[in-house]
Structure formats: C-alpha cells, structure tokens
C-alpha cells in the first residue's frame, strides 16, 4: 500500500506541476511586487526542481507533515482532518443507505425473479445508475427542501441535514448494489447445494438467509467497497450541491486557489482511505467466504473458486445451462 501511496503522490505532483498559474500571485494578491513574489516562491520552494520538491514532500510526509496550506497558512493535515470526519460520515451514511436498500431489493428481486417487483426494481436500478447524482440532488432539493420543506437544503449539522445528501448518493449506490446482489443471488440459486437444501424441505427463509445470501456475499461486499471509494471521490461533487464542509469542498476550493499542498493532501487522504477500505474488504472475505469458513466448521465444501465469485453482475457461470 505504501508504494501505491507514493505513486499517488507522484501522479498528483506531476499533474499539479503542469498546472498553469502561479500560487505566489494568488497568495500575495495582484498588488505584490515581483521581488515579493520571488521571495515567496523561494520560501514555498516553488523554484526548486521537481525532484527536489517531490523528495522533500515525501520526506515530510513520512514525518506526518502534509505541508502548509497556501491560503490559510494552517498545517494541511490539520485542515484535512478537521473536515475528514464530515466526509467520512457522509460517505458512510450514503453507503449504509446503499447497502440496506440495494441488498434488500436485490434479494427480493432475485427470489421473485421476473415478477412485477423484480421488473420494477430492475428498472429503477437501471435508472439509478444512469442518473447524474448531482442532478438528483438538485431535484431532491427542489422537491423536499423547497417544495415540501421537509429537510434543509444545505449544511451538515445533524440528522435532519444528513437525510437529503445521504439519500441522493445512497440511492445511486443502492442501484449498483441491487444489480450486483440480484445477479449474485441468481448465480447462487442455481447451485446444486441450494437445490439440495430445498429438497431437504428447509423453509424458504432459511434457504435464502442461511444458504443463498452467505454464498452471494463476496461480490456484494466487493461492490460495496467500490461504492465507498466512489462515494469518497464523488464527495467533490456532492458536497458542492449540499454545501457540506467536507474534504471535497476543501479540495474544490483548493483547486481554484492553486493551493497545491491541500490538493495533494486531499487526494492522498482519499486514496488512502479507499485503500484501507479495500484492505478491510479483503480481510472480510476471509470471514464471509463459505469455503474459508468451512475449513474451520467442517461443513461441506463448495465447488467454486474465489475468482469465479467476483465479477461483473450477470456473468453467471454455466452451472445451470
């Protein structure tokens, strides 16, 4: 993970060094004299060669120093971690909405395949993955905030404020989760051991929750992890719509101000949390993978390999012809 993070820093470093504009002018304002600008550029190390700047940055990074914000003169780490909880909370709430709605509808859809419920929820999910989330957010503000006055339109101060943003992002995520859940469940439904379970006369509920769902969990968890990462990234857009003071907002402003240290720090923190979530998911596999579990509980082994579990929704195997 550390090499990947260094790579991320490098990528962002390269990109920002290509950016037009001069942070010194932005910081000192249009009235600064050329000498003052030059002095500041020296202070900021902007005149150093690219590699020197990169090595310096990484060196400081290893000491937990993300640099100093050009605009506020505050440590970047402090600025980011002031805002990080907000973004984390927002992304988590959205993911919870996405997980609950998505998994629930996915299961019911798979169980009641080709019924009206399945059809309607598949279409809604298709709409959900096709709709730009910021547009959905604006529509929600028009309907629920302006029209009905149920929820505030901006800010992030308490549960009342959390509803619209989490729903907006959560419902889009739910659509992805629903599609994945449905196809994973359908994939499992055709397995022999499910037929066996049914043949043994187990109740439908028990078949779904004890046999089908655990076996379908890996692709579902994978897609949830991806949604979390997308939510983190998407915060740069969604926080604009709802005026949420999170990392996304910080970064949008930083891009506009050529505030390189904040942009670098923000990308790094988002990439890092995304990687950590992926790591957690890998660990989670061990707990939810029936084959790994079966090693310890001595249950009958499933035929499939792990690689076959995780893939595009709908790419079911030939198990059922």
């Amino acid at each position: 993970m550390i090499p990947v993070m260094l790579g991320v820093v490098l990528v962002i470093f390269v990109m920002l060094s290509l950016s037009p504009g001069d942070p010194a002018v932005q910081m000192l304002g249009p009235d600064a004299t050329p000498e003052q600008l030059e002095e500041l550029r020296d202070d900021l190390g902007l005149n150093d060669p690219f590699l020197v700047r990169y090595v310096k940055y990484v060196w400081n990074l290893l000491h937990g120093d993300l640099g100093t914000s050009y605009t506020t003169k505050q440590p970047v780490a402090k600025e980011i971690f002031e805002r990080f909880p907000t973004t984390l909370l927002f992304t988590t709430l959205a993911c919870i909405v996405g997980a609950i709605v998505g998994i629930l509808f996915g299961i019911v859809s798979a169980v009641k395949q080709y019924t009206w419920f399945d059809n309607v929820s598949r279409v809604i999910a298709l709409i959900g993955i096709s709709v730009p989330s910021f547009w959905l957010g604006l529509m929600f503000i028009i309907w629920f905030s302006v029209g009905l006055g149920w929820f505030p339109s901006s800010g992030f101060y308490g549960p009342k404020y959390w509803v619209l943003p989490s729903l907006t992002v959560g419902l889009v995520q739910a659509s992805n989760v629903m599609r994945q859940t449905r196809s994973a469940m359908l994939d499992v439904v055709r397995q022999d051991y499910i037929r066996t379970a049914r043949a043994k006369g187990q109740s439908e509920m028990k078949v779904i929750f004890s046999h089908e769902l655990p076996n379908a969990l890996i692709p579902i968890v994978t897609v949830l992890g991806m949604q979390f990462g997308r939510g983190m990234g998407g915060s740069i857009i969604s926080e604009q719509v709802f005026a949420i003071p999170g990392i996304g907002m910080l970064m949008t402003n930083a891009i506009g101000n050529l505030n390189y240290p904040v942009v670098q720090g923000g990308v790094l923190v988002i990439a890092l949390s995304f990687s950590i979530v992926n790591l957690l998911i890998d660990i989670l596999y061990a707990f939810i993978d029936p084959r790994i579990k079966s090693l310890y509980s001595g249950k009958k082994r499933v035929r499939k390999t792990k690689n076959e579990f995780v893939r595009e929704p709908g790419k079911e195997s030939a198990a059922n012809g």
């Binding site: 090499p3 991320v8 997308r230 990234g233 990308v267 995304f274």
Partner: peptide
Amino acid sequence: MRIVDIIMAIPSIILAISICAALG
C-alpha cells in the same frame, strides 16, 4: 499493474478533475 493500482487508488472523478485542472 502497479501503475494501474496507483491510478485505481485515486477515485476516477478526482483523477479526472485533477487532470482537467492541470491541463486546463
């Protein structure tokens, strides 16, 4: 694949926005 991993560690929209900010 390491390079791909690095690019994948940055959520795509953030990557796209950073590239666009850099290129104009």
